[in-house]
Amino acid sequence: MIKAIIFDMDGVIVDSEPFWRQAKVNAVARFGGNITLQQTYQSTGLRIDEIAQHWIRHCGLDPACQQALCDTILDEVIEQIKHNGKLLPGVLESLQWLATTELKVGLASSSPSRLIAAVLDIFDLNQYISIKVSAEHLLLGKPHPQVYLEAANQLGIAAQQCLAIEDSVNGLLAAKAARMVGVCVPEPGQENNPSFGIADYKFTSLEEFISPTISKLLRIKLPA
């Protein structure tokens, strides 16, 4: 029986993945590297320090620039969300629906706490989410399940009784490794990635989450 819903943030709650891709391209170029927007998908869903390490290795950059590269990426993403960010379709409605039930709701993200706090404040979502876990404070980031296991622990719910909502393959791998029910909402253009085949449910947007199928799974009523 599912007792908790755990949301990823980037690409699930807020349409931030395009900002992350452009920020990676810009930041890597600033430090002497060159990557394409298509290549940036390689690091989608990773923790920001792992993103920086990935592109430092790929481009042969000075390892000493890692923290500066992280800060440059993060600063641009936050600014873009502040000025151009939008909640993804179905997010607010899904959160409002879950708020009428006894289910617990949490967030487990690879993003730094600073970005999580900014997003939840900008869109006034703190009222819907009881715990927020950032992989920045953990030993291992996605695709390792540690961030999801920590979220389940903070919620006081067994991981097997949690449903996780993800948009990236790395995130979905983490959720499934934690033995959670995995819902994937792939970013447009990534729907046909065969790696999403491990998901228990696959939707084109969270507008499809409020459905008889999920209502039955969660044992809750559909909104009137």
Results as ranks from 00 to 15, higher is better:
150 E>L: 14
151 A>D: 04
152 A>I: 05
152 A>K: 12
152 A>C: 08
155 L>H: 01
155 L>M: 07
155 L>T: 00
156 G>M: 06
156 G>P: 12
156 G>R: 10
156 G>A: 09
157 I>K: 01
158 A>Y: 03
158 A>P: 01
158 A>S: 13
158 A>G: 01
159 A>P: 13
159 A>W: 00
159 A>S: 15
160 Q>P: 02
160 Q>F: 00
160 Q>A: 14
161 Q>T: 00
161 Q>C: 06
162 C>V: 04
162 C>I: 06
163 L>V: 13
164 A>P: 02
165 I>L: 15
166 E>L: 13
166 E>M: 12
166 E>G: 14
166 E>P: 04
167 D>A: 05
167 D>P: 12
168 S>A: 15
168 S>L: 12
168 S>W: 07
169 V>Q: 08
169 V>S: 05
169 V>W: 14
170 N>C: 05
170 N>K: 14
171 G>Y: 09
171 G>S: 08
172 L>E: 02
173 L>R: 14
173 L>Q: 14
173 L>D: 03
174 A>P: 00
175 A>N: 02
176 K>A: 04
177 A>Y: 02
177 A>K: 09
178 A>V: 02
178 A>C: 07
179 R>Y: 01
180 M>T: 00
180 M>G: 07
181 V>Q: 04
182 G>T: 03
182 G>V: 07
182 G>I: 11
183 V>C: 10
183 V>M: 09
183 V>N: 03
183 V>A: 08
184 C>F: 03
184 C>W: 01
185 V>M: 13
185 V>N: 01
185 V>T: 04
185 V>P: 00
186 P>M: 11
187 E>S: 10
188 P>D: 06
188 P>G: 07
188 P>V: 05
189 G>R: 08
189 G>S: 08
189 G>F: 05
190 Q>D: 11
191 E>N: 09
191 E>M: 09
191 E>Q: 12
191 E>V: 11
192 N>G: 00
192 N>Y: 02
193 N>T: 06
193 N>A: 12
194 P>D: 12
194 P>I: 08
194 P>V: 11
195 S>F: 02
195 S>A: 15
195 S>M: 13
197 G>W: 00
197 G>N: 12
197 G>S: 15
197 G>V: 04
198 I>F: 05
198 I>E: 02
198 I>T: 01
199 A>Y: 01
199 A>E: 00
201 Y>P: 00
201 Y>W: 10
201 Y>A: 09
201 Y>H: 13
201 Y>M: 13
202 K>F: 01
203 F>L: 15
203 F>W: 09
204 T>D: 13
204 T>L: 10
205 S>T: 14
205 S>L: 02
206 L>V: 02
206 L>R: 06
206 L>A: 03
208 E>F: 07
208 E>G: 01
209 F>L: 11
209 F>V: 11
209 F>S: 07
210 I>W: 06
210 I>K: 03
211 S>A: 04
211 S>Q: 07
211 S>F: 04
211 S>H: 10
211 S>M: 06
212 P>V: 14
